[in-house]
């Protein structure tokens, strides 16, 4: 045992001693050659990264996409994150998506719309299978396979998110919460696979989703206390002389909630991708395989795994906060009104 321990560091040192000059050498050659035949080294760089991990490889392919070498890293990253009318499958070509303009509105099918539809299709397939399984499931037998996996999530949303935050009457909001959770989750996850785009990394998508939450919350509030209760709620149970301050604050408060939801989801999903792409681009900016092997790929893998976690986390957070807002809007009066009412009358 001891012998092996003594020998191993030596062997590693030898390997490093051989590899480092080699890598440096190859690097120098490759980037020296890049002046003449621009396409060869970049694709070789992509090939070198490819076996390490699939996702960064795809990102690297994105990076290699600019053969002119003039395009800046920032532009490439932006191109990757932003919506576009082209669905690019880098080495294989790209699909131009149709442009539709109706009544002055540009409702063209963009990359993110396609991703949304992919997500929807995936959701529908998965849950038609699961739902079908549940239809011929009696309470005597247990679910298995996909149904079991989805049930864990559904049960989690049902009990820990909806029931604990909304309380009484949570069943009404369950379909919305479940759909929003799985929709965001699948969007986040599909954004992580090669060639995918993160629809939830687009502020328009998250804005739309949080507008849904806003409407659901407001409707729930109206249904829970009627118009009078709703207006009373805006005064926060304070003395009438404070209303001039309280009412605008409460109204702004109604809008800050969905705004926070929007920015949170969008920023989280965008930030992760920017970090991954930036890490990959460090190796291209510094033109070094060592940086690629020692920094870019390991860190990109790390961030990628982190993103996997964040995909779940952000879907959960969005759903959780939606449930919380609904709960606040509906249950607030329940325990607050008696005291406030006593102060009023």
């Amino acid at each position: 045992m001891k012998r092996v321990n003594v020998i191993q560091p030596k062997a590693i040192l030898k390997v490093i001693a051989i590899l480092v000059p080699l890598l440096l050498n190859v690097n120098g050659h490759a980037f020296a050659a890049s002046g003449q035949s621009s396409d060869v080294p970049k694709s070789s760089a992509a090939a070198a990264v490819a076996p390490a991990v699939a996702v960064p490889a795809a990102e690297a392919a994105h990076g290699a996409e600019a053969p002119e070498g003039e395009e800046k890293a920032g532009d490439v990253i932006m191109h990757h994150i932003l919506d576009s009318n082209v669905f690019a499958f880098e080495p294989f070509g790209s699909i131009n998506l149709p442009k539709i303009v109706v009544g002055g509105f540009d409702i063209s099918i963009t990359k993110h719309v396609v991703m949304l539809w992919l997500v929807s299709a995936l959701l529908l397939i998965v849950f038609s299978v699961v739902g079908g399984q549940y239809k011929n499931l009696t309470s005597r037998n247990a679910p298995k396979g996909l149904a079991n996996a989805m049930e864990a999530l559904v049960e989690f949303i049902r009990v820990d998110v909806a029931k604990s935050n909304i309380g009484h009457g949570y069943e009404k909001h369950l379909p919305y919460l479940l759909t929003v959770f799985f929709f965001i989750l699948f969007c986040n996850l599909l954004g992580l696979i090669p060639y995918g785009a993160t629809a939830t990394g687009n502020v328009n998508v998250t804005l739309t989703l949080s507008i849904f939450t806003f409407f659901v919350t407001q409707i729930a509030a109206f249904k829970a206390h009627g118009v009078k209760g709703y207006l009373q709620h805006l005064t926060a149970g304070t003395h009438w002389s404070l209303w001039i301050i309280m009412v605008p604050i409460e109204i702004i408060g109604q809008f800050t909630k969905p705004f926070a939801l929007t920015i949170r989801l969008f920023a989280n999903m965008t930030a992760g991708h920017i970090i991954i792409l930036s890490l990959i681009f460090i190796s291209f900016i510094l033109k070094s395989y060592i940086v690629a092997a020692a920094v870019s790929v390991p860190f990109a893998i790390f961030i990628d795994l982190l993103e996997l976690f964040v995909a779940f986390l952000q879907a959960f957070v969005f759903t959780m906060l939606s449930a919380l807002f609904i709960g606040l809007a509906t249950a607030h009066e329940g325990h607050d009104e008696p005291a406030a009412g006593a102060a009023h009358h």
Partner: peptide, 11 residues
């Protein structure tokens, strides 16, 4: 607006 529209419809 297009993306908002499609998101809303899809969702």
């Amino acid at each position: 607006p297009g993306l908002i529209f499609w998101t809303a419809i899809t969702f």
